[in-house]
Amino acid sequence: MVQGCENVRPALHRAPQVSYRWVDPETVLQEAGTLAVFGFGTGAPRSADPRWLNVDLEDFDAPTPLEIWQVDGPVTHGRVGELQWSSGDGWLFAAITADENTHGGPSATAATAYAQLCEFVASRRERHVLRIWNYLADINQGEGDVERYKQFCEGRAEGMGSFFAEGFPAATAIGHHASAPRLQVYLLACDEPGGRVENPRQVSAWRYPRQYGRTPPSFARAMTLPGEDALAISGTAAVVGHASAHEDDLLAQLDETLVNLEALLASANMPAGFDTQSPLKAYVRHPTDAPVVRDFLQRRLPGVPVLLLHGDICRSELLVEIDGWRYA
């Protein structure tokens, strides 16, 4: 059984297939079963399709591939105010991009974004949120409880309300360097529940001590998708217990991160290691570190598709974070 898992019914549909491809977005949006397509950074193409999201993170490699989610069966899509969505085969993609200039600081903006997303998902049959991504500007700016990440955590909790009373989904929170102070939140939900997975090497995020803010982070370390044929992995870094490890040592942080990833796979009863069908993202704080991270991952995870993105980790002492997918 999966550690910390809910009672999961057998899935009637397979998990979305996530891939990285160098393709024109309009071409892939016309393919059957395309649920969502993501471009990265200022050089990404544009599309008005609600399934398209331009993510405010720059890729260190050029040309930059698109990230593509595809499901079995037809897909419908639309917009509700600031929110964009698509659904098909029991799966739901929903996203909101909220400008702090309109909604206030990081706390108020997060509260507004999460309230809208939770209200929308609650109206859908695909009401089981399995995975969330959060990208916000200047994530480490501010000291103590006024740090923007801590403010974001407070707003997120306010916007969630009791929506995740039964347990949090897997999640990532990364700082972007776009010129506008936007908060981007997007999610994957399903009409069936998944199974929450924790890492025995780490304190669960929602149980962090007070030093990490008035409101602890709200996420599970990973989530098995219905049917347990895929694992959605939260942002994972060099954290042991609740403490950051190996300050200012990039290679040691990378080693520790891989140990944490393997511990998650073991907790989820997934095969050890990652393969060519296990797309990952590596978020790197300092652009000068990108070649080192690339070489490390190519050596330790040969053949594994990795998007190398410029992003700030939620703790200023952490230099790199990895999230992604593992298919059984």
Rank of each mutant, 00 (worst) to 15 (best):
D89A: 14
D89T: 00
D89F: 02
D89Y: 05
D89S: 15
D89Q: 14
D89H: 10
G90H: 01
G90E: 07
G90T: 04
W91A: 04
W91H: 05
W91C: 08
L92A: 10
F93K: 00
F93Q: 07
F93E: 04
A94M: 12
A94F: 01
A95K: 12
A95L: 03
A95V: 07
A95S: 13
I96K: 00
T97L: 14
T97V: 12
T97Y: 03
T97P: 03
A98W: 06
A98Y: 00
A98N: 01
A98L: 12
D99V: 10
E100T: 02
E100Q: 14
N101S: 12
N101L: 10
T102I: 12
T102G: 11
T102N: 12
H103Q: 15
H103C: 08
H103Y: 14
H103T: 14
G104P: 06
G104R: 09
G104V: 07
G104H: 11
G105H: 09
G105N: 11
G105L: 08
G105E: 13
P106Q: 09
S107V: 05
S107C: 11
A108V: 01
A108W: 06
A108Q: 11
A108T: 09
A108I: 01
A108N: 13
A110P: 07
A110F: 09
A110T: 15
A110I: 14
A111L: 05
A111P: 08
A111D: 08
A111S: 11
A111F: 02
T112G: 02
T112F: 12
A113W: 00
A113L: 02
Q116W: 00
L117P: 05
C118A: 13
E119Q: 14
E119F: 04
E119N: 14
F120R: 01
V121T: 04
A122T: 12
A122K: 10
S123E: 06
S123W: 01
S123P: 04
R124Y: 06
R124A: 14
R124D: 05
R125S: 13
R125W: 05
R127F: 03
R127Q: 14
R127T: 15
R127N: 11
H128Q: 10
H128P: 03
H128T: 04
V129G: 01
V129K: 04
V129M: 10
V129N: 04
L130D: 11
I132C: 09
W133V: 11
W133S: 15
N134I: 06
N134G: 04
N134K: 10
Y135E: 05
Y135P: 12
Y135F: 15
L136H: 00
L136N: 06
L136Y: 02
A137R: 14
A137K: 12
A137C: 08
D138I: 03
D138P: 03
D138E: 15
D138G: 06
I139C: 08
I139R: 02
I139M: 10
I139P: 10
N140W: 07
N140P: 07
N140Y: 06
N140H: 08
